[in-house]
Simulated scan of single mutants.
Amino acid sequence: MNEVASAPELTSLQQRVAREIVALVRRDNRVAGDHLPEIQLAQHIGTSRSPIQVALRHLAQLGVLQQDTNRGFFLSVDAKDWDGSVASLLSTDDPLYLRIAEDRQSELLPDEVTEAELMRRYGVARSTLRKVLSRISEEGWIEQSMGHGWRFLSLIDSPDAYEESYLFRQSIEPGAILGPSFNFVPAELKQLRREQQRIVDGGFQTMTPIELFEANSHFHETIAQWGHNRFVLQSVRRINQLRRLVEYRQATKRGPRHTQAAEHLAILDAIERQDFMQAANLMRAHLNGARRGKLQDSSVFSQAA
């Protein structure tokens, strides 16, 4: 695939939108010729059409989309071949991002920091720093305080925190499946099955850590949404935000991802059969197995990880 090096730099919002478009296209394994309607993308991502249009033009300049003046944007390259600078939109390899993440997990950064302090520590301009802080804010582990100050939020980044989070999830996620309001959406179930099958069929070896994490989060959040209990859904989403950084590290260990995706498929099969008791039991066993596996791998919680 040919890359276009002259593509303009995107704002933080436009980067996020482009990243989500790439993740969506790769997750659905779309093929050349598929249409990407701007309105549907805006609704899915939760933004206006303006950043959608900028992101689509950016992807067109990178050579993976083509624009039809009257009909919009279409894939010119199969999603499986979206590599190079396009796939890098999903990467977490921004050096400043990684340094802040490592320093925070190693407790080298306090709970509250100022932009001036961070600029001195990392030797970067304010504009560069703010782009990274905006991205971290979108991921849910920092928030802006008064003036130029920022406050780091709690993460699930210790064995005790992981133990507590999984025990909590074992109580609410299977319970949502057994709840009186649970009602799955066949089209969404089909999409989840396609995503998880892609991982089983080799994606666990080739997908980026972010893609693996997002596919996992999408699976659990969608099932929670089918339960039609806002508190369960909010809790699952919040836990996913809090465990993001540790999950990125664990996504480098590829074997467990294949097993987890296979277990996801078994849960979906039970839901489709409307055997909700079996689905809930499989979900509980799945979460318990994941809990044991993560707690046994204590290296991801160490400062040297």
Rank of each mutant, 00 (worst) to 15 (best):
P256E: 06
L245N: 08
Q278V: 09
P256M: 07
A290E: 14
A262H: 07
R273G: 05
M277V: 11
H286Q: 12
R292S: 14
R273D: 10
Q250W: 12
R291E: 13
L265V: 04
R273H: 11
A270D: 08
I239T: 15
Q241I: 01
R291Q: 15
F276T: 12
N240V: 09
E263A: 04
L282N: 05
A290D: 11
N288V: 02
D269F: 02
G289L: 09
E272N: 08
L242H: 14
R284T: 01
L242E: 15
R291S: 13
A279K: 07
I239V: 15
L245Q: 11
R243I: 08
A270Y: 03
A251K: 02
M283S: 04
A270K: 01
H264Y: 00
L268G: 01
A280V: 06
T252I: 05
T259Q: 11
H258N: 11
N288S: 14
L287T: 04
H286Y: 10
A266H: 02
A251M: 13
R273A: 13
L287A: 02
A279L: 07
R244L: 15
L242D: 13
A279W: 02
L268F: 02
A279H: 04
A270M: 05
L242K: 14
Q260V: 15
R244T: 10
N281P: 03
L268E: 04
A251I: 05
L245W: 09
M277G: 08
R257N: 12
R292F: 08
M277L: 05
D269K: 03
Q250Y: 14
H264W: 00
D275P: 03
A251N: 05
P256L: 09
R243N: 09
F276A: 08
E272V: 12
I271C: 05
H286A: 07
I271D: 09
K253G: 01
G289C: 10
G255D: 04
Y248M: 12
R243P: 01
A290R: 14
A285Y: 09
A279C: 04
I239A: 13
T259I: 15
T252P: 00
A270I: 03
A285W: 09
L245G: 07
H258R: 14
G289T: 11
I271F: 01
A280K: 03
Y248P: 03
